[in-house]
Design a protein around this nucleic acid. Structure first.
Length: 585
RNA sequence: GCGCCCGUAGCUCAACCGGAUAGAGCAUCCGCCUUCUAAGCGGACGGUUGCAGGUUCGAGUCCUGCCGGGCGCGCCA
C-alpha cells in the first residue's frame, strides 16, 4: 500500500525508463496549480538537459507510455514542459477506502528500522523548568513519537542535569548560609534523611549563587572545589546532592506530565560518572587526550574548518567533569546499553558548537559511527520585543507558570464562547488543559524549529485561524457528528468521491504519508502541523459543502466514512505532535 | 575579529532534490446559520521575497559582496 504520489511516481518513472531515461526523473509531486492538475512531474527538463534532447519530445514520449494506465484521468504537457496529471475518480476513491480501512491511516513505515535515542527536555537539578525548556520538550517529544510511529525502535531520554557546577554552587551557598551544617562533616555520616532545603529554596539560591560566582572569584573557586569533591564521592555532599535531586524531580515530573511529555529513560549525568575513568584511559591510549593550561582536553579542530572550534574539555583544572565530559560518557553508555544507530539531540541552536565538538570527539574515539549523532537545534521563544522571553519583571518565566497562564486563558476563551457549560467542573478543567496544551504546542510546532518565534498568548489561544484550538474544534465537530450518526443508526460505507470538496479532502488524506516522511527526514514537526491544519481546513470546507446525515443513504454512508477517516488521521497527526483531543468542547 | 542562523503581505509565519500565478492565519471590507458545533464557510484587499551582482531555459531557494537583526566563540550547562 502506498500513497498516490509514490504510486504515480513509479508509473511515470517507468515511462521515463521506457524512453531510455533515468526513472528517478519521474518523481511526482502535488501540483502547484490545483486548478490544472492533481500531480505534476518536472523531470522532462532535467532529462532534456542531461540527454541533450528536446524536452517536449521527452514529455510526449512519457505521456505516450502512460496511456492505458487507468489511474490517470488525464495527462497534459504545460508550461515550460511540466507533465500535469489528473487522477481518475476510481483510483482516488479506491485510495480513500484503503486509508479509511488502514489502522495507520495511510502512513507507511521506514524501509529499514533503526535504533534511535532522542535526547531532549534537558531538565536540571535546582533549576526550575522555564520557557527555555518548552521547545526542547515539545520538539523532542514530537520527533520521538514520529520516529517511533514510522517504525524505528526509539528511546526518549531526559538527560537529567544532576552533575555539574550548579551542585558546587548550591553546596557552597548553602554552607555560607549555615543551612547544611550536618552535611559538612567529614566521614561517612550518617546524614539527615530529610532535605534541608525545599524547592523554593533552590529556586532562590541557585540564581543568587550563580550571579555571585560571576562576580566573586574566591566564591567561584570554592564552588568548583565543592563540585570536584562531590564528584570524588565526599559522603556528606553526596547525601545532600541526593536531596537536591529528589526535591527537583518531584517538581519537574508534573510539569512534563501536564504538557504530555514523558521519557522512557531519566538518566542523569551522574549515572555515567563511573564510566569516566575508563573513558579517560581510552582517550589516553588513543593519544587523543592532551594537557593544556592545567586541564585535559581533546582537540577536534580540523585544518579545513572555517572557524576556531574549541577543544573538548574533559577534565577541568579542578579535576571535575564538565558537561562535555558527561555528554561523551553518555554516548559511550548508550552504545553499551542500547547500541543506537542514531542519537538525536533536541537542544537549543545556541549549543550547536558544543555538540559539534562532542560529536567529533565521539567519532574520533570510536563511540559512534560517522553520522550517528545529530544535533537538531531550534530557535528561541521570544517576548514581544523579539528577545528571549522574560517576565514583566525581567526574570525568567517558569514553565509551570506559563502553563497555568495558558490554561487560565483557555478557560476564559471557552467561557466567552459559551462552550463546555454542560461539562462537570473536572471535565471542564481537563478540556481547558487540553486546549491550552494544543495552543502552546501547535503554535510552537507549526513554525520550523530553526526559527525563533514571538510568544503571543492571545493569538495562540484564539479559536480562530491557524491555531491548536481550531484543530481541536474541527476534531470535536466530527466527533459530535459521529455520535449523532450512531444515535440515528447511520453507518459508514464505501467511499465514492464525487464532489470537489470530497476530492480535495481525499487528496489531502493521501498526502499524510509524504508529510510524515518529510517531518521524519528533516526532524521537523512543522510538516505534520501543516498537514493537520490543511486537513482540518479541507474537512471544514467539505463539512460546509457536503451535508452528511441528511444526504441519501449511499452518499451519506460514503461521506460519513470520509469524515471518520479524517477524524482518525487528524487525531493521529495531533498525537504525533503530542496534542490530545478532547471528546467535547 | 571569526563563525553560525535569520531577513518573505501592515502583523505572525509557510513554501517538498531550483520550476508555472510565492501561500496560510491575523487585521480590514463584503456575503452566508428554518442542515449535522458560524470557534465555521465563500469572496475582496494586500508582495520588487533586505540591497546589488552572478550561475541557470528558470532563483525566495544555489554562489559572491553589502546592509540589518539574533546567537556562539574552553574550565556554567
Amino acid at each position: 500500500m502506498s500513497d498516490l504520489k509514490s504510486a504515480l511516481g513509479e508509473a511515470v518513472g517507468a515511462a521515463f525508463a521506457s524512453a531510455g531515461l533515468p526513472a528517478e526523473l519521474g518523481r511526482v509531486t502535488p501540483s502547484d496549480r490545483p486548478d490544472l492538475a492533481d500531480f505534476q512531474c518536472n523531470g522532462a527538463l532535467a532529462a532534456a538537459k542531461a540527454a541533450k534532447r528536446n524536452p517536449r519530445e521527452i514529455a510526449q514520449a512519457v505521456a505516450e507510455a502512460l496511456k492505458g494506465d487507468s489511474r490517470f484521468a488525464s495527462f497534459e504537457i504545460a508550461g515550460p514542459v511540466f507533465i500535469n496529471l489528473k487522477i481518475a475518480e476510481g483510483a482516488l476513491s479506491a485510495r480513500a477506502n484503503e486509508i479509511a480501512a488502514d489502522p495507520r491511516l495511510g502512513a507507511g513505515r521506514v524501509a529499514a528500522p533503526r535504533r534511535v535515542m532522542v535526547d531532549y527536555g534537558g531538565p536540571n537539578v535546582a533549576k526550575p523548568m522555564h520557557v527555555g525548556h518548552l521547545r526542547a520538550s515539545i520538539i523532542g517529544e514530537s520527533v520521538k513519537r514520529t520516529y517511533r510511529f514510522r517504525g524505528d525502535q526509539v528511546w526518549g531520554d531526559a538527560h537529567f542535569g544532576d552533575w555539574g557546577f550548579q551542585m558546587g554552587l548550591l553546596i557552597t551557598a548553602l554552607a555560607d548560609a549555615g543551612r547544611i551544617g550536618p552535611f559538612l562533616a567529614e566521614g561517612d555520616g550518617p546524614f539527615p534523611a530529610d532535605s534541608p532545603v525545599t524547592l523554593a529554596d533552590l529556586d532562590r539560591i541557585y540564581p543568587e549563587a550563580s550571579a555571585k560566582a560571576k562576580a566573586d572569584e574566591t566564591f567561584r573557586d570554592r564552588a568548583r572545589k565543592a563540585t570536584a569533591e562531590l564528584q570524588a564521592g565526599r559522603p556528606g555532599y553526596r547525601a545532600l546532592w541526593k536531596h537536591f535531586i529528589a526535591v527537583s524531580r518531584a517538581s519537574l515530573e508534573p510539569d512534563f506530565a501536564s504538557i504530555g511529555v514523558s521519557f522512557d529513560l531519566w538518566k542523569g549525568e551522574s549515572d555515567v560518572d563511573p564510566l569516566i575513568p575508563g573513558m579517560i584511559a581510552e582517550l589516553e591510549a588513543k593519544h587523543l587526550l592532551v594537557d593544556d593550561q592545567g586541564a585535559r582536553i581533546v582537540r577536534v579542530a580540523r585544518n579545513d574548518d572555517k572557524r576556531d572550534l574549541p577543544p573538548l574539555l574533559v577534565v577541568s583544572s579542578e579535576g571535575s567533569a564538565m558537561y562535555g565530559t558527561t555528554d561523551l560518557a553518555t554516548i559511550l553508555d548508550r552504545r553499551r546499553e542500547y547500541d543506537p544507530d542514531l542519537i538525536i539531540y533536541a537542544v537549543d541552536q545556541r549549543q550547536a558548537d558544543h555538540f559539534e565538538v562532542v560529536v567529533r570527539a565521539a567519532y574520533l574515539v570510536g563511540y559512534a559511527q560517522e553520522g550517528g549523532l545529530e544535533h537538531i537545534g531550534f530557535g528561541t521563544m521570544n517576548g514581544p520585543d523579539g528577545k528571549p522571553f522574560k517576565t514583566r519583571e525581567g526574570g525568567v518565566l517558569k514553565l509551570g507558570d506559563l502553563i497555568a497562564m495558558t490554561k487560565a486563558k483557555a478557560a476564559e476563551r471557552l467561557h466567552e464562547a459559551g462552550l463546555g457549560a454542560e461539562l462537570s467542573e473536572a471535565d471542564f478543567g481537563e478540556t481547558a488543559r487540553k486546549v491550552a496544551v494544543a495552543a502552546l504546542k501547535f503554535a510552537d510546532l507549526s513554525n520550523h524549529r530553526s526559527t525563533s518565534y514571538i510568544f503571543d498568548l492571545d493569538r495562540f489561544s484564539s479559536f480562530e485561524g491557524k491555531t491548536g484550538p481550531y484543530l481541536l474544534y474541527q476534531a470535536v465537530r466530527v466527533k459530535s457528528l459521529l455520535r449523532k450518526a450512531a444515535d440515528e443508526g447511520v453507518e459508514a460505507g464505501k467511499i465514492v468521491i464525487v464532489e470537489p470538496a470530497e476530492r480535495d479532502l481525499a487528496l489531502l488524506l493521501d498526502s499524510f504519508d509524504s508529510a510524515l516522511a518529510e517531518a521524519y527526514d528533516k526532524k521537523a514537526p512543522n510538516f505534520i502541523a501543516d498537514h493537520a491544519y490543511r486537513l482540518a481546513q479541507a474537512f471544514s470546507k467539505f463539512y460546509a459543502a457536503c451535508p452528511i446525515l441528511i444526504a441519501q443513504p449511499p452518499v451519506r454512508a460514503s461521506r460519513l466514512a470520509l469524515a471518520e477517516a479524517t477524524l482518525k488521521q487528524l487525531e493521529l497527526a495531533l498525537d504525533l505532535l503530542g496534542i490530545e483531543t478532547p471528546e467535547r468542547m
